[in-house]
Design a protein around this nucleic acid. Structure first.
Length: 877
RNA sequence: GGGCGGGUAGCUCAGUGGGAGAGCAUCGGCCUUACAAGCCGGGGGUCGGAGGUUCAAAACCUCUCCCGCCUACCA
């Protein structure tokens, strides 16, 4: 085996083997409790970023763990067609060729997108494979597959027939660049510094003017009224009068509406029904005209008088200029407002009246709220429940139609001859009534409409399939919070509506990955860490393990390259520890389990392993990935490597023959195998590589080996306590050596006074000597040797005769420092113990524990004081 | 406007009522044949601030100061 582990030579090899042997493929008729996850489908346009890497690493950890633990595990992979995003990508490609989609026409354009999808759409899938994801690729889905498209139509038709889908004129967010409507969620509000322009609207009777405050002066061209609050004494008398709309030079009424906030601006509101949601609501209440002034491309239209054809933002400036010139601009105030931007292209969206398709959400939301409230769906961490409720309780109808070409075309047909509308899961061509030709709705559905069906559409719905019966509801959904509303909430609603059951039992919401400074990673900031570069540089195992270690609940993950490097070192440690372990084992050492080793380190490591197995399993089950990773990290490095492997060497190298080495070899065999299996979900590749080198294995691949189970019979509290003493004594000697500057290659003398607890230390004296570099280890009960440094562990004293080995003043300093610490600690404890209310009210075991600690400190102090006297004499001589 | 999260060692973070922890960084000593991507040892924190509850608070309550996020139909 190489001295340094090289991940790149092995990763591809094992992944291929796993696929070839079908380990990822779930069998829906096999025994075992089902465990299923559906992947949050990445966009087909996607390139693996840190968010994907974390998300999929966590899913893979839990899937591999469950699979090894005996579950019938299924992880369904797939991709999302990502309507607007994908269309934009292909349009950019066309632009390079001097083309645009209109030039191609709808059909050819869609063909072109499919072509693109076939060529490039698999990039992210290949990247997931490099991450080691154990997805069932035989069940890979795409939101525009025939099957999933059928599910989309079925859902649309049913919702329409139930009256939940309707078509209406309403204010929606319009992206002038993507030229489509967006849902409320797709408009991201960003606090922006703007202005509040105060504009004079002259009264038609010439008796003065009213001042209106607005952040979007260009929309005034579409004003059809101005409104005041009827309870506002300042303005109530004006209600019913007319004002002259400046520039347009048109009479519009002053109306009263209680919506107007008397405290905002001037208390006078301009009403632009076509470009503002509230104004539109007012217009319906008051029966006002609706005048659109901004076109679908963000330019002013024919209603904008001489501004026709001008860009909306330029128009804003020109209008302000013109108003100013006419003396109608009262003042300009700086004002910060939330500006909506398209989540795909960041263009400022225009609220605009438009005829769109909507889905009524309230009836869907109610059972979905209930499901979370009564924990049919458990959201973890729980704090996200509040956010979920907050949004769901105030949910508004969802604009589901998009004016793009790439996506699921609405299954709606119109007869232009007799003006009928048909909604059907099957394609239609002829009007049943007038036999005229039918025209299919040109709009497509919001991408999130199809992803909302993902947990059951991927399993075969609307057919009643074995997969659905076996794996639905899925066990858990693992995702980041940024798509809680976009996706998670909608899946819960749709799952309950169409399956009659929640889509998943648990939702684990993990953090966002940020850079080392805590900033959101983005291309424009240039702080993006490319996961594939991390994999290239440090290996997949190190990268995955690092993500897991950082994945604490409820906090963002700040990833730095150094962190991954540190874990790379751990992977190498595992590699080297395995290399050594493998030299101790052979095909004969596997089966010897009946003869329980009496060798303390053997008993100890097996006992410790049980506890770590339990901790690891519990942590993964609770999605505490950082705790899982940390537990196994410190066990492997600091217990197995630092103590256990060091301690078995003398025995196995034949330096002492007090214990049967074949039993120890057997323990190493089992323990190494268990460690590999424990690590496998976290670092799949290196563990497989080493597993394959075991002389005897339980299975062809570690992937399908049984996960270690907590075994009570191997728990050995006595061994843990005895080992604790041995390690404690070694630590004391090492500490004296380190602190007093004894060179590592110098062997020292040591004397232990253990007050009757010497036997275990005597028994393992040879090992203590090896670990602490002691030449002679003596045990005594009487007077301590003179001229010695002393250390105490749990009341056992260790003397290291100084002779000429050490610097006396240094040692005095060390003792003084330790005494001071004892002084501080014991003082605090004493105060507590002497407190009558503490003695009265604290639980007995807490009092006992404190007392015990105090007694120990006192003992230690006594010993150090005598040691100090000794040293002082020595210094005096 | 409403809501949420965070402020613990130089850095990144664990730690939800009883002796302040980890990784990295740092300092000192070691090429001890599994591993220098390593080994051994050390230093370093009045747990954002104030008050309160309690025998006991980093943790619970109140207030307060910073930082971040989500959400919203105040033009």
């Amino acid at each position: 085996m190489e001295k340094v582990f090289n991940p790149h030579t092995i990763e591809g090899k094992w992944y291929e083997l796993w696929v070839k042997n079908g380990y990822f493929t779930a069998n829906n008729s096999v025994e075992g409790e089902p465990f299923s996850i559906v992947i949050p489908p990445p966009n087909v346009t996607g390139m693996l970023h840190m968010g994907h890497a974390l998300n999929n690493t966590l899913q893979d950890i839990i899937t591999r763990y469950k699979r090894m633990a005996g579950f019938n595990a299924l992880w369904v992979p797939g991709t999302d067609h990502a309507g607007i995003a994908t269309q934009n990508v292909v349009e950019r490609e066309l632009a390079k060729e001097g083309l645009n989609r209109e030039m191609l026409g709808r059909e050819k354009f869609v063909d072109r997108v499919w072509e693109w999808k076939e060529q490039s759409g698999n990039t992210i899938i290949e990247q997931l494979k490099r991450l080691g994801c154990s997805c069932d690729w035989s069940r890979q889905r795409f939101t525009m597959d025939a099957g999933l498209s059928r599910a989309v139509r079925e859902v649309f038709v049913r919702l329409y027939n139930e009256g939940l889908i309707y078509r209406d004129n309403y204010i929606i967010n319009w992206c002038p660049r993507c030229k489509t409507a967006l849902s409320d969620l797709e408009a991201e509000h960003e606090l922006t510094n703007g202005s509040l322009w105060h504009i004079r609207y002259p009264l038609a009777d010439g008796s003065g003017h009213l001042i209106v405050a607005t952040t979007r002066p260009e929309t005034m061209l579409g004003d059809t009224a101005i409104a005041v609050n009827p309870s506002d004494e300042r303005y109530a008398p004006y209600i019913g009068k007319d004002v002259i709309l400046p520039i347009v030079d048109k009479r519009i009424p002053v109306i009263g509406d209680s919506y107007v906030d008397v405290t905002f601006g001037t208390g006078v509101l301009k009403v632009t029904p076509a470009h503002d949601l509230n104004d539109f609501e007012i217009s319906k209440r008051c029966n006002l005209d609706v005048v659109k002034v901004i076109d679908d491309d963000g330019r002013m239209n024919e209603n904008a008088v001489h501004f026709k054809g001008m860009d909306r933002f330029e128009c804003r400036e020109r209008i302000v200029e013109e108003l100013d010139k006419k003396g109608l601009l009262e003042k300009i105030e700086p004002y910060a407002l939330g500006v909506g931007k398209c989540y795909r292209c960041k263009t400022v969206v225009e609220p605009s009246l438009s005829r769109q398709w909507f889905l009524k959400m309230k009836p869907l939301a109610e059972p979905a709220i209930e499901a979370v409230r009564n924990h049919q769906v458990r959201i973890i961490p729980e704090m996200w429940e509040k956010t979920y409720f907050e949004w769901m309780e105030n949910i508004r109808d969802w604009c589901i139609s998009r004016q793009i070409w790439w996506g699921h075309r609405l299954p709606v047909w119109y007869c232009d001859r007799c003006d009928r509308t048909y909604v059907s899961a099957e394609d239609l061509s002829t009007c049943e009534v007038c036999k005229g030709d039918l025209r299919q709705e040109s709009d497509v559905l919001d991408t999130w409409f199809s992803s909302g069906l993902w947990p059951f559409s991927t399993l075969g719905w609307p057919d009643d399939t074995k997969d659905l019966r076996t794996y639905y509801p899925t066990s858990v959904l693992i995702t980041a919070f940024d798509i809680l509303f976009f996706w998670v909430a909608r899946m819960i609603m749709m799952g309950i509506r169409f399956m009659g059951q929640v889509p998943f039992r648990e939702v684990y919401i993990h953090a966002l990955v940020r850079d080392a400074e805590g900033k959101k990673m983005s291309k424009s900031k240039g702080n993006v860490i490319d996961p594939l570069l991390m994999i290239d540089e440090y290996g997949t195992d190190a990268f995955r393990f690092a993500l897991a270690m950082l994945a604490a609940q409820g906090r963002d993950i700040l990833l730095s390259e150094e962190r991954v490097e540190g874990v790379r070192n751990f992977v190498n440690k595992v590699w080297n520890a395995s290399k050594l372990s493998l030299t101790f084992i052979d095909s004969g050492t596997a089966g010897i389990e009946s003869g329980k080793s009496a060798f303390l380190p053997d008993r100890w490591i097996r006992s410790r392993l049980q506890k770590v197995v339990r901790e690891l399993s519990e942590s993964i089950e609770k999605y505490r990935f950082n705790e899982a990773a940390n537990a196994v990290y410190s066990f492997v490095w600091h217990e197995y490597c630092d103590w256990y492997l060091e301690m078995v060497k003398p025995n196995l190298y034949g330096k002492v023959d007090s214990f049967d080495p074949s039993l120890t070899r057997s323990v190493i065999h089992r323990t190494l195998s268990d460690i590999l299996k424990m690590l496998h979900p976290l670092m799949p590749f290196v563990t497989e590589e080493i597993y394959q080198r075991l002389p005897v294995r339980e299975s062809e691949s570690i992937m399908v080996a049984p996960f270690p189970k907590y075994t009570e019979a191997e728990v050995d509290e006595a061994a843990e306590q005895e080992m604790d003493l041995v390690m404690g004594i070694v630590d004391v000697v090492r500490n004296i050596r380190g602190e007093t500057g004894i060179a590592p290659n110098v062997r020292v003398e040591a004397v232990v006074r253990a007050d009757g607890r010497a036997s275990i230390l005597q028994e393992y004296g040879y090992y203590i000597k090896e670990l602490a570099k002691i030449e002679h280890l003596a045990f005594m009960d009487g007077r301590p040797p003179e001229q010695s440094a002393v250390g105490v562990y749990k009341g056992i004293e260790v003397f290291v005769p100084l002779k000429s080995l050490i610097d006396v003043s240094k040692e005095l300093g060390r003792v003084a420092k330790e005494l001071q610490k004892i002084e501080e600690d014991s003082e605090r404890l004493l105060k507590k113990l002497n407190n009558p209310s503490f003695r009265e009210k604290a639980p007995a075991e807490v009092i006992a524990k404190n007392q015990e600690t105090f007694d120990e400190l006192m003992k230690k102090k006594e010993k150090l004081v005598s040691s100090r006297e000794l040293l002082e004499n020595l210094a005096g001589n």
